[in-house]
Structures are given as structure tokens and as C-alpha cells.
Amino acid sequence: MFPEENTSPHPTLVLVCKRPAIGYGKQRLAARIGAEAALRIAEQLLDCALEDLGDWPGATVIAPDQRVHRDWASALAPQALCLPQSSGNLGERLNALDRTLRAAGHHCLVFIGSDAPALRPEHYQRVRIALREADTVLIAASDGGVVLMASNRPWPDLSRLPWSTADLGQALADACREAGHSVALCGESFDIDEQADLTRALGELADDPRPARRRLLHSLASTRGEHA
């Protein structure tokens, strides 16, 4: 089965995700707040990303990290194309998704993960506007990574980038520029990996009215109270 061709004037939003499970993902967080609490937060973080996927004005894709989770992912986002990731490191998997979707006519792609709940509609709007002029648009993460990466052009080779390090954001921007892309940086946000990120999220989400964010906020407040 091949992806359907995109005929929307809007970029395609791609959610790259894992199925939350105890012992799989968010291990730095689990070491501080416990496995079950970390799992609950991972599930609610994914709900926030799904909320963004559901609100997106163009085509959407959900890309679980394993083929065996295709049915799970399809049920979470029935409006989205489900395209499981291939094998390899994160860069290799993103390159493979990118090639497959562009071959199907998705020429402008916006990639997000499932752990940046502070992304707001205005972030996405700024990215869509910036993509009218720039080849590639990035939203930086405060830890040196990125929380969103979007491009009108195929990504360069991402396989050797320093994923999950503080050098990623600069390395990604440099790789794109070396490939001839014009690059626009479109603000900064953060993702949730450490216990300290939970405190920051409490402040960032305090006035966010979106339902999934309200549920996450309540859970974060409860978790902080348990581990104060």
C-alpha cells in the first residue's frame, strides 16, 4: 500500500511517535518519578500531539516506530495516513519517511514528535508563513535540539547527526545549509525529558485551554505534589 497523493495547499504534518509502555521511552523521567507516573505523562504528551494533528488544516500522517503498532496508531488518528517507520537510527528513519511521502506528492512536510506540549497554534502558523519564503524551518528546543522541523525540500542525509544531544539543532541547520537550503529559525520551545521540564510545563501550559493540555496540566500538578 502506498501513501495517497497530497492535493492540499497546506503542508503535511507528520507525527513521529512511539507507543508508550513501561520501560520504553522517557527513562530519564521514569528514574526520577517512577515508571507508572512516567508512562501516564508519556500517554498524555502523545494526546497533546494528537490534538495538534487533529487541528491541522492539511494532510496528516502518524508514523509509529514499529510496524506492529500500525493498528494502534491508525485507531488513534483515523483521519491520518499511517506510515510506520523503517529500521535504523532516527535520522535514517526520518529520511525514509521523507522519501516515501515526497514520492507520493507531499512536497512540504512538517515533522513533530510527541513530547513538546508547549507548541501552540501560533507556532504552527509562524512555521506555515515562514515556509512561503524559506526552504527549511526549524523550531529550536531549549536543550539544543529541535521540537519541529519542516521543509519544502528533501532532507539531506540525517543519519550522522548527533541526535539526542545539545548539538543537534546547530548540526541540523548546518547540514541543511550545506545542502543548499535556505533555513529559517522560527522561535524556541522545549520538550519533556527530565523532571525539571515538568515544572516548566506547568508554567507554560497554565493558560492553555486545549483539552489535552488541561489534562496534562492536571497530571503534572499531581505528579509534582507526589514528588515534592
Rank of each mutant, 00 (worst) to 15 (best):
F2H: 10
E4W: 14
P11C: 08
P11T: 05
L13F: 13
L13C: 04
V14M: 03
L15R: 05
V16C: 10
C17E: 09
R19K: 15
G25L: 07
R28T: 15
R28L: 15
L29T: 08
L39N: 09
D47F: 05
A49Y: 06
D55W: 12
D55P: 03
G58A: 04
A59F: 01
P64H: 02
D65I: 05
D71H: 11
L76N: 07
A77G: 12
Q79H: 15
L83P: 06
L90E: 07
R93C: 05
N95W: 09
A96H: 10
L97A: 04
L97M: 05
L101M: 10
A104Y: 09
A104R: 07
C108K: 00
I112T: 12
A116M: 04
A116T: 14
L119D: 02
Y124D: 00
Y124G: 00
R126D: 09
V127N: 00
A130S: 12
L131W: 01
R132T: 15
T136W: 00
A141L: 03
V146H: 08
M149G: 00
N152W: 01
S159H: 06
G169N: 12
L172G: 04
A179V: 01
A184K: 01
C186M: 11
E188S: 08
A196S: 14
A196P: 09
T199S: 13
R200K: 14
A201N: 03
R210Y: 05
R210F: 08
R213Q: 13
L217P: 00
L217I: 11
A221V: 02
S222L: 11
T223L: 07
R224N: 14
